[in-house]
Computed example of a mutant assay.
Amino acid sequence: MSLTSTLDPAVDPDLRDGLLDLWTDVSNADGAVGFVPPVTRDAVRPELLKHLVAMAEGRTRLLAGYDEDGRVAATAFLTFNTHRLMTHWVWLYTVMVHPRHQGKGYGRDLMAAAADAARTLDGIEAIRLTCRGGLGLEHFYGSCGYKEVGRIPAAIRVGPGDDRDDVIMLLPLN
């Protein structure tokens, strides 16, 4: 079964709650999406609200992936770069696949859908993302066509004595 992706779905309470549950579940499964487990929905909610506000303001686009039951199973947020000399590429943030769907190819489906969505945006030539080192994520993104273009050692502190590299990756869309 494959992931069904939708760019800019209507945000209703079901989608909002699905995003909140996804982010919480991914975080608690050790997903590198801005939190360290254990995390609660209440801790995640303010971060989700920041994304929703950015969407309402037109600065961010949501790519939502749905499983065969129509539940939110994956997400990625495409965020426009506001620096006037860098508007030809977008950021990809909060890339998540629900733990129950990992290993099914949903991550690859999501990354392909994100690239396809970015290609529909006027003037966008590349996607840039960062990921937490030490988890092998750069290998996954590399297998999706991204190239590592930079690394900031020990930029992410996930706990006392546990610093990780911030890995910068780029996907040219041409």
Rank of each mutant, 00 (worst) to 15 (best):
114 A>L: 12
6 T>D: 08
105 G>S: 03
61 R>Q: 14
97 V>N: 04
104 K>N: 08
162 D>L: 11
46 P>I: 11
17 D>C: 07
5 S>W: 07
69 D>Q: 15
156 I>F: 02
128 R>A: 09
90 V>M: 15
158 V>W: 09
139 H>A: 13
143 S>G: 11
80 F>W: 11
96 M>P: 00
66 Y>G: 09
6 T>N: 10
141 Y>A: 11
108 R>T: 13
52 L>F: 03
127 I>T: 02
82 T>Y: 10
159 G>C: 03
168 I>A: 13
7 L>T: 04
144 C>H: 00
142 G>W: 09
45 R>M: 10
158 V>F: 09
40 T>H: 07
159 G>I: 05
157 R>M: 10
145 G>S: 03
99 P>F: 02
41 R>S: 13
119 R>Q: 01
70 G>C: 05
37 P>K: 02
151 R>K: 08
108 R>H: 15
68 E>F: 05
59 R>E: 15
155 A>G: 00
60 T>F: 02
12 D>A: 12
79 T>C: 09
11 V>M: 10
148 E>G: 07
44 V>L: 05
55 M>R: 15
84 R>W: 12
39 V>M: 01
78 L>P: 04
122 D>G: 01
21 D>E: 12
137 L>F: 01
144 C>F: 01
87 T>P: 03
101 H>D: 08
160 P>D: 13
73 A>E: 02
55 M>T: 11
173 L>R: 08
167 V>A: 08
26 V>G: 05
5 S>P: 12
27 S>L: 07
98 H>L: 03
23 W>C: 00
131 C>D: 03
171 L>V: 08
91 W>P: 00
95 V>E: 02
84 R>T: 14
74 A>L: 04
42 D>H: 06
85 L>V: 12
49 L>K: 12
71 R>N: 12
33 V>M: 03
151 R>D: 01
10 A>K: 15
50 K>F: 09
21 D>P: 00
18 G>N: 08
149 V>K: 03
41 R>P: 10
73 A>G: 07
87 T>V: 13
129 L>W: 07
95 V>M: 04
40 T>L: 10
35 F>I: 10
168 I>D: 15
29 A>W: 00
112 A>S: 13
86 M>A: 14
19 L>Y: 05
60 T>C: 12
111 M>G: 06
19 L>G: 05
57 E>W: 05
100 R>S: 14
128 R>E: 13
77 F>G: 00
46 P>S: 11
80 F>K: 13
110 L>H: 04
159 G>S: 10
79 T>K: 10
54 A>Y: 05
55 M>V: 15
107 G>V: 03
1 M>S: 13
45 R>N: 10
17 D>S: 12
38 P>H: 02
10 A>G: 11
146 Y>N: 09
24 T>W: 02
23 W>S: 04
9 P>A: 00
88 H>Q: 01
172 P>D: 14
22 L>R: 02
95 V>S: 00
133 G>M: 06
95 V>C: 01
69 D>C: 09
169 M>F: 01
101 H>G: 04
147 K>E: 15
147 K>H: 14
170 L>K: 06
161 G>W: 04
130 T>E: 15
137 L>H: 03
18 G>P: 08
144 C>E: 08
120 T>W: 05
19 L>I: 06
104 K>Q: 10
